[in-house]
């Protein structure tokens, strides 16, 4: 009996969630919480968690201290009336306020959860690529810095090819990177961001290529776009790049060597 009770521990989103559960389990009035009862039950729950060798998140411990603090303040005799002309503040007031507010949002979340969700209950036409004709089309949106960094991180996360021989590295320059990207972009209407990197790039290659892409954007030789917020990132070369009229950027060489 005791075992089954211990094994079946409810999980709570946090200390407020646990407190709300205890309040409703004991059928207490939320405006008149019995601090000693709640504190005891709260601590018992933490003990049970620890008995199972689970870590108690620090937030739960902070709340335990808060509960005991409130309990102790309620034990103190009330202040002299002449000292405090305002009506005395219930030590539980802040906690009650937090619980009420938390309960509101929890209920809001439960209702929201029941709303039909995209790609769970409700479906729409998936994003399409081929409808885009040029970078200026209003169907594409600009890529935020956050997304661009995310794409870079994903590339860097992939392990490089294991090095078997010690090879002398040829130092890469951004100018080389630019030349490489320009070559990739030639004859392309658009190029998925990933495809300007080679199959198993080394870390320095990724970085050089990334800088090269940014440099090309700065020079307005290509645009970075995506079709919607979630979408893949694409590079759109300018006409000059696409047609091969621009194959290298000379000005850059001196700047980056």
């Amino acid at each position: 009996m005791a075992l089954s009770y211990e094994v079946k521990l409810d999980t709570f989103e946090g200390p407020l969630d646990l407190l709300l559960h205890l309040v409703s389990k004991n059928e207490m009035d939320i405006y008149d919480i019995s601090m000693s009862c709640i504190t005891a039950q709260y601590l018992r729950y933490l003990e049970q968690v620890q008995e199972q060798n689970l870590d108690v998140a620090s937030e739960f411990l902070v709340m335990a201290a808060t509960l005991m603090h409130i309990k102790s303040r309620m034990l103190l005799p009330k202040a002299e009336p002449e000292e405090f002309e305002n009506e005395e503040i219930d030590p539980r007031a802040e906690l009650v306020q937090r619980l009420l507010e938390y309960r509101r949002y929890k209920e809001g979340a439960q209702q929201l959860e029941e709303y039909p969700q995209l790609n769970r209950e409700v479906f729409v036409r998936p994003e399409t690529v081929n409808t885009v004709d040029d970078g200026a089309s209003s169907a594409v949106s600009e890529v935020g810095v956050y997304e661009l960094v995310k794409a870079l991180r994903e590339l860097l996360k992939e392990p490089p090819e294991p090095i078997i021989h010690a090879v002398v590295k040829t130092p890469l320059s951004v100018a080389d990177g630019i030349q490489h990207v320009l070559q990739c972009l030639r004859q392309q209407q658009y190029l998925p961001f990933r495809e300007c990197f080679c199959a198993m790039p080394q870390r320095d290659e990724i970085i050089i290529t990334f800088i090269a892409v940014l440099e090309l954007v700065k020079l307005q030789l290509c645009k970075i776009v995506q079709l919607n917020q979630h979408g893949m990132i694409y590079l759109y070369p300018s006409d000059a790049v696409r047609s091969g009229r621009v194959t290298s950027v000379d000005g850059i060489k001196s700047e980056y060597h």
């Binding site: 309620m74 009650v96 306020q97």
Partner: peptide, 23 residues
């Protein structure tokens, strides 16, 4: 959202409760 009464308007009872069972 479920509206709860403004806490300023609700009087919080100040009786001490040490008996530990909540009643």
């Amino acid at each position: 959202l479920h509206e709860f009464a403004d806490p300023d308007e609700v009087s919080l009872p100040l009786e001490m409760d040490f008996d530990g069972d909540g009643s």
